[in-house]
Each structure stands twice: as C-alpha cells, then as structure tokens.
Design a protein around this nucleic acid. Sequence first.
DNA 1: CTGTTAGCGCGTTCAT
DNA 2: ATGAACGCGCTAACAG
Lengths: 309, 309
Amino acid sequence: MVNGNPNVKPATRKKVLEVIDRLDYRPNAVARGLASKKTTTVGVIIPDVTNAYFASLARGIDDIAMMYKYNIILTNSDENGGKEVQVLNTLMAKQVDGIIFMGNRVTPELREEFKRSKAPIVLAGSVDAEKSQPSVNIDYVAAVAEAVKNLIDHGNQKIAFVSGPMDEAINHDYRLKGYKKALKDAGLTYDEKLVFETDYTYKAGQALEPALTAAGATAAFVGDDELAAGVMNGLTDAKIDVPGDFEVITSNDTKLTELVRPKMSSITQPLYDIGAVAMRLLTKLMNNETVEENTVILPYGLMKRSSTK
Amino acid sequence: MVNGNPNVKPATRKKVLEVIDRLDYRPNAVARGLASKKTTTVGVIIPDVTNAYFASLARGIDDIAMMYKYNIILTNSDENGGKEVQVLNTLMAKQVDGIIFMGNRVTPELREEFKRSKAPIVLAGSVDAEKSQPSVNIDYVAAVAEAVKNLIDHGNQKIAFVSGPMDEAINHDYRLKGYKKALKDAGLTYDEKLVFETDYTYKAGQALEPALTAAGATAAFVGDDELAAGVMNGLTDAKIDVPGDFEVITSNDTKLTELVRPKMSSITQPLYDIGAVAMRLLTKLMNNETVEENTVILPYGLMKRSSTK
DNA sequence: CTGTTAGCGCGTTCAT
DNA sequence: ATGAACGCGCTAACAG
C-alpha cells in the first residue's frame, strides 16, 4: 500500500504517486485549443440570469451545448451597451468558437463588433431591427396582435400597452406594432395616452394602477410577466377585480403566470426551445455547415387563464 | 477610402485591411493561458439556472468574478452526481483557476474529485456534512429553528416540515435538525408523520394539501419558495385560510415571496452576497492568500409577511 | 532595464 | 503504419 505504509521510502513513494497521477491524466484543453484553434466553448451574453425569461433560454442553450460537447461562458450584461462590447471583446480574446447574444438593444457600435467577429453570433429571444445576425424568435408582432385582439373581442375599447423601455427594439419595433395592428384591424384608434413605458419590475407594475385607471383603461397587454404580476396585484390591491373589471394578458409564459392569483393569461413561447434551437443553429454555423434559414421563427400560442374573461 | 473605392487594387486593399486588422489586435487569451498556467476563468456548477435561488447566487458570483477579471463557465448539473463529476473533469481539463460548486448532495466520489483538484473549490449556498471544502452559507439549523419557534409561539402544536429530497444534506442534516431543535426547546414531541419529503416544485406543493390536513397540521415550515407557493395555493384552493387556519413560512426569501398572495413570511438570506462572498473567497484562494476562515457564515433573518399571524 | 529565447502541451505535418 | 519535429501565441526566465 502506498498510502499509509512507513516502510516505503519517501522517494519511491513520490515516484509511485507521480505515476498514479500520470494515470488519470487529463488532456490539457488549453494547449489543444491553441494548437487546433478550437476551444469548444461558446460565449453567452445574457441581460440578467435572475430574469426567469432569459434563464429559461439559458437552460436550453446549456443543454444543447453540453450535448455537442461545448461549454458556456456566461456573462450578465444588464443590457448595458458598454459592458456588452467589452464582454464581446474578452470573449473573442478567449477564442470562443461562437457566441449567443441575448438583449434587445443592439446599438450601431455593437453591430460593428458583431461584424468584426470571426466567431458566428446568433441572437436568442432577442431582435435587432436591422436583422444583421442569425436569430431565433417567435413572431412578436403577430403574437401581440393576437393577444390584443383577444382583449378587443371581449369588448374592451381602451386597452393599455404596458412595456419596458421603448428604446428596446422588441418593444418599439415589434410589440407596439402588433398592438397598433390589432387596434387598426378592429377599427379602434391608437391613443398614446394608453402607452405606459416603465421598468421590467414588479414594483413598477404595482405602481401603475392610478395611471391605468385615470386613463380609463379596462384591460392591459403587458410585455413582461413580473411586470404583469405587479400591475395585477396593484389593481387587486386597489379593489379592482381582475378579470371582472380589468383584464390583463402577459407575454412570456414564465412559471410565474401560474403562481399568482388569478393565474395570468399569456402569450405562449417555447422558452427552452428558443435557447436550444439557437444553440443548435450556432453549432451548424461553427461547423460551416450551410444552413437553409438564418432567422428561425418558432411557433407561439395564447394561453387563456384567469386574468382574462 | 479603402471600403468602396474600385480604384484600389485588390492586393493592396487586402494588405491595408490586414494592417487594420492588426491594429485592433487582441491578445490571444488561450496562448497566454498555456504559457502562464492561468486562464482567468472559473467554473461554476449550478443545479439549475432556472431556479431563482441559485440564479441569485450566480448573479453575485458573476459580478464579483467580473470585478476581478474572471469569466465564468456555467454548467447545470441537475444535482446529478454522475454529471457533476463529469463536469468537474472537463472544467479541470479546461484549466479553470477555481471552481464554485452549488449542490447539496456531495457524494463520496464527488468528495474524492474535489480533493484531486489542484484548483480551489468553494461551496456556495450548499453544505457538505463532512465540511471538506471552503464554503459560504447561513446557519441553516438556527434559521429553521427560529422560524419554527415563531410558528410555535403562535400556538401551533402540529407543525409540518415540508422539504425536498431528504438525501440532500441541507434537508437531512441541517433543516430537519433545526426543526427538531425548535420542537425540543418548546417541549413538543417530534412526529415523523409531520415530515413531508417531496420535489422542489410548485405542483408537488399544491398536491400536498390533503396529506397536510389529514395529519392535522396547522402550520408548515417549507424548504423552498416555489414549493411553499404550491402548498399555500393548494391550501387556499381547498378553502383553508392562510394564515387564519394555516400558517406557512418559507426558506429562501426569493422575489416570489412578495408576488403571491398572501405574501409569504420567510427566512431571509443574503442570496446575492452568498454568491459574491463565495467568489471573493475563491479569488483569495486562487492567489494563495492566507484566509482566516474557510467556512464563512453570513447572517440570516426572519421576514414576517402575511402567511403567518 | 530592454531584447532574446526557451518552453507551455497539444495538433499537424513530414519523414521514416 | 509509427514517430519526430515544428508551430500555435504567449509568458517567463535569462542574457546583454
């Protein structure tokens, strides 16, 4: 026995241990990376892991990555442009084989960095109005239009549009368009006073109740589940019955929709799949496989629960 | 102009572009890693990013990592022992400078791998009964004892202990001990029939109502927020008033506690800080700095909201 | 102090 | 087929 036997000379013991060490030898992935110019790791830029929507995508990304023997370098960006380009650069310095980007504010500088990158980059659950990169999403305008139409069909004439920052492409260029489309299709006129731009937080939603009622709204489309939970609870706390007096429908079909009371109706998105498909697309790109379609649109749905009639 | 001028010969244009390329030259981190034996990346093993508790820790980890110029390789383990050792090995193959491990089922094999690692490993928000590794946690037994005492003080005699799998050290070796301690201190006898072992899911919690009432419990300590939301809603759906007829207190002080109605009372944990401190500790270990205390215990609290009297 | 050179541990190529 | 040599891009040790 090598371990506890005092009769073994230290020198030979050392030698034996070295051999043992050499036994469970692990190839050095860094050296291999330098020689082969492939690191089998991909970078993932996420606004905030703490956000249930993005966390779900991240889970899909990681599972598929692992399936294809890749590892994920995960970094939170807070959708901060400066941080995003900096992170991009360190990812490229680390020679990642590809990058998955989540975030809805693709600035011109960022777009430049994207182009400068030799590693393929795909957007997951995120839109760039310029469509400069491969991406995986749902058809946000159609989904929102359908959700709002549902509200209209229930007899609502004044429907609030509650969203996060309007400088995010997804809000300004997609969701708002869907909202307007539904109004137009129904012959309703668009009223800026029914548009509420705020943060993606529960508190912000909760604080919206006075404004909502002051505007005379009887229903709301909300662009984020936590935000939606906030407006719903704010309403309820003000003795406004949901859905009796006020209907709300949300966007991300996060677990949260089923935990609050009433349960929230929502646009349905294949969250995990968006991440998974984005990663799968990335593997193809990294292998220089020819891919039929660079921008894939996954199906959405409408789940009616108890926050709408 | 290099870009669009057709009068520039392709060859010279190519040359110029190469120079430009060389201008914004990025040092190759892989080569540096090979030469210096430092990769400035650390591995993070997490049960599931989708879990709000662990996601909060992960956010703290990433922020501090970034502050110290490290990047994070994040992998989901599903607390699956086999996956965990495999991931550990690929992390070591990739020459990470350190590892943060989250997960409460440290098997003997895993413990062996930990010891084999030359990179320091710290546990975050996770316990190993053997205390074989540096770690950052709160005092779970004291926290649970205090929570249960609170329930006892409200006159409850039959208090349910609802937790995830009992083969997790945190449930079996810590929370349950705290529960028993509180009972003993109050002169109540421990009854196995009041211990409910289940999954960490909303549905599992919701399904618990019949069993809970059958056991005659009038209050419950729950080891996870989502699970707690489930038992609360299950109770409410069965027309049992919370907290009037049944009190519930939960463990992780996740955002969720404030989103459900009634808002849930909870043990309070510095989630972000647990991750941040763990990462900070890891940086010290990676620098071979001498650290006073390898196992750090952060303060906890008790937040009384509306699910208790 | 600046300039040169030898590895770091692999993949890849070339000669055997 | 098997094996020796070189190079990946950088750091660290060394010499000048």
